[in-house]
């Protein structure tokens, strides 16, 4: 039942599907925006701290090994290398978790 001033046809199934598709598209766009990668600052901070944490932990362990076992300087050398590897591993894990 359309009013006289209404020039469009009354709602039809096609029309409904059209509107539904539009709504769905808008919703998908919104979801894509919500799921989009966080801002560059946040991402950089995340990766930076992951890597930094790995190197710091490795260095501290190396220094402790030097201190307690008298391995100086090889504890620190090994610790920094392993810390570097751990930091890289942390980044890989962080990237993987952010992509999923």
């Amino acid at each position: 039942m359309s009013s006289p001033s209404d020039h469009t046809r009354p709602p039809e199934p096609d029309d409904f599907e059209h509107r539904l598709a539009e709504k769905l598209k808008a919703r998908q766009a919104r979801q894509a925006k919500e799921n989009a990668a966080p801002s560059g600052w946040a991402t950089g901070m995340r990766y930076g701290s992951e890597f930094f944490g790995g190197v710091i932990a490795g260095t501290v362990i190396g220094l402790l090994a030097d201190h307690f076992f008298g391995w100086s300087p090889f504890g620190l050398l090994a610790g920094v290398m392993l810390g570097f590897a751990a930091g890289a591993l942390n980044i890989v894990r962080a990237v993987r978790s952010m992509q999923n």
């Binding site: 810390g83 590897a85 942390n90």
Partner: peptide
């Protein structure tokens, strides 16, 4: 021989990166 120390360091680095991220931000 290599992977386990790296995993242990990676585990120990968690509180460091967790705390540094919040603090630095």
């Amino acid at each position: 021989l290599i992977v386990t120390p790296i995993e242990i360091i990676s585990f120990l680095s968690r509180p460091i990166s967790l705390s540094i991220r919040l603090f630095a931000n």
